[in-house]
């Protein structure tokens, strides 16, 4: 692990950093503003998307509230959310902090804080979770995509349910 850390080089290329920022902002917009069908396109075909509590993470437990390993599984989730799930309407709003980005040799590792608010039809806004994104981003045919996205959330007493991807 320490060896791995030594391999990491901070990314200082402003253009690359802006492209990575654009990827993150486009990603959260697909969830916050939709359409949700566009959400899977931000991932490589084989990928790891997982949303897990810091409590599980710190215990070395991989169990996540969501765990998907291909674009197909992400499409399943997007489709089920829109056509099979029963839930009260809500608006999701992600707020991202600045990212620490390193070049690992296998891709760009991007870590940033994120808070996610949820607003009910009556207009009540609650904090759904405080979390971090721990991502591995790769370039495929000139396009940056997530090879891994781990949403590690501190708020492990979730208010009601998690409907949308995060």
């Amino acid at each position: 692990m320490d060896h791995q850390a030594e391999m990491n080089q901070p990314v200082t290329d402003d253009v690359l950093l802006r492209r990575i920022e654009r990827l993150q902002l486009s990603y959260i917009s697909s969830i916050d503003d939709g359409p949700l069908d566009s959400w899977p396109q931000f991932f490589t075909d084989k990928c790891l998307y997982t949303v897990l509590s810091r409590d599980n993470y710190d215990r070395g437990m991989e169990l996540g509230v969501m765990r998907f390993e291909s674009v197909g599984m992400l499409v399943d989730r997007a489709t089920a959310t829109q056509h099979a799930a029963v839930f009260a309407p809500r608006v999701i709003r992600h707020v991202l902090g600045p990212a620490l980005v390193d070049d690992t040799g296998e891709g760009y590792r991007s870590r940033c804080n994120v808070v996610i608010y949820q607003t009910s039809p009556d207009g009540d806004t609650v904090l759904l979770m405080a979390a971090t994104y721990d991502d591995l981003i790769v370039e495929q045919e000139g396009v940056l995509k997530f090879k891994e996205k781990r949403v590690i959330y501190d708020t492990h007493r979730i208010p009601d349910s998690i409907v949308y991807p995060l």
């Binding site: 996540g64 509230v65 989730r77 099979a84 029963v86 839930f87 009260a88 979730i158 349910s161 998690i162």
Partner: peptide, 24 residues
Amino acid sequence: RLRQANLMGSAGYVTLDDAEALEF
């Protein structure tokens, strides 16, 4: 067990419906 946990829990394909309906 990890993979099928997508069905259950606070974001589960199945159980998110329950948490919603119970609040209704």
